[in-house]
């Protein structure tokens, strides 16, 4: 929006401050969000409970018994005087995908919609670089940006129920790997054995916001082998 000054600070109830850097999604805006997120992690002001980065803004949740909106805002303004970008420090994570037909009920429809063959869609999907932009919807649902324009399709008009955990989903420029059996209106193009919800109590997620992700195609026997190893591992720990 022209004439609007960014960043914009908006109080959220008595316990949070929303810091916005734009009103449309872009890699540039997202990297400014992640830069502030990292700066806050390195120099947290007193009373900060947690920070939630999203696509164009960051929510800072604080303890109103310790601090208030004005103090948090002043701290953020001080941090923003040293500009920084957030995506470069992310780790590279590899996620394996099996694109077999029964794991990818929408792959053909996607191919038809964009005028490519199924193999070309798969090739496009796994050659791209993705970045974790935010989490949402349910625990471990990491929204990745980076779906190539050649294979972008809109959301379906209505959601489909009971989609298996590990499904690889796309909608527009976004991709995610589901972690729970949940409904989705996105197109299902594969299944991953890579665990995103980890059993580790202290760090139960594979990705951090800002991480880079690459997909690697595996065949059915590799997929089954990974699932078997995971099951053995779980029984071993039980």
């Amino acid at each position: 929006m022209s004439g609007e000054a960014w960043p914009r600070f908006t109080p959220v109830a008595d316990h949070a401050l929303l810091v916005s850097f734009g009103d449309s999604i872009s890699d540039e805006t997202s990297s400014v969000v992640l830069g502030l997120d990292r700066a806050l992690a390195e120099a947290p002001p007193p009373g900060i409970a947690e920070c939630i980065p999203a696509l164009v803004n960051l929510l800072i949740d604080f303890d109103p018994l310790v601090t208030d909106h004005e103090q948090v805002r002043a701290h953020v303004e001080r941090l923003l005087r040293t500009p920084r970008r957030g995506t470069t420090n992310g780790q590279l994570r590899e996620v394996e995908v099996c694109y077999d037909e029964d794991f990818a009920p929408d792959l053909e429809a996607v191919a038809r919609a964009v005028g490519l063959s199924v193999d070309e869609v798969v090739g496009c999907h796994q050659q791209a670089d993705y970045v974790v932009r935010m989490y949402g919807f349910a625990p471990g649902y990491a929204y990745l940006s980076g779906v190539p324009p050649e294979i972008q399709v809109p959301r379906k008009p209505s959601a489909v129920r009971d989609i298996a955990a590990g499904s690889v989903l796309i909608a527009g420029p976004q991709c995610l790997v589901s972690t729970l059996t949940m409904p989705t209106g996105w197109s299902i193009i594969g299944r991953s054995p890579t665990r995103i919800l980890l059993p580790d109590d202290r760090a139960p997620f594979l990705f951090a916001v800002g991480d880079m992700v690459r997909f690697k195609q595996i065949d059915r026997s590799q997929y089954e082998a990974r699932k078997l190893a995971e099951r053995d591992d779980r029984e071993h720990h039980a």
Partner: peptide, 11 residues
């Protein structure tokens, strides 16, 4: 439509 953004309890 607005880009997805953080929510809190009580929104």
């Amino acid at each position: 439509s607005i880009p997805s953004e953080p929510l809190v309890r009580g929104s």
